[in-house]
Amino acid sequence: MIKERKVNITPDMTWRELTPGGVIQDAGNAEDFKTGDWRSMRPVWNTEKCKHCLLCWVVCPDNSIKVEDGKMTGIDYDHCKGCGVCTAQCKFGALDYVPEE
């Protein structure tokens, strides 16, 4: 879920509306930028095989393995770029790597 931003900077804003010098008033706004459509391959999670070791969470460069209370809960496809690092390291066959359709 996207937090309410002080200024949601978008490419249709005029120079009068943009913050001076490109200041980003809200730290951590990378979340606003959806990179999920960069994927050509996608990781698919098999809940039955998953041991919740969370090594996939450790290696994911985009913070796209969702975790709650020490357990994996899913994949953030809004931001996962489909690099496949999580699937390559999984020792339990709990992450498949399949082409995007």
Binding site: I9, P11, L18, G21, G22, V23, I24, Q25, D26, A27, N29
Partner: peptide, 13 residues
């Protein structure tokens, strides 16, 4: 209210 400054400023901005 800390901010970020000096971001990469591409052609749209």
């Amino acid at each position: 209210e800390p901010v970020s400054m000096g971001p990469l400023d591409l052609p749209p901005y």
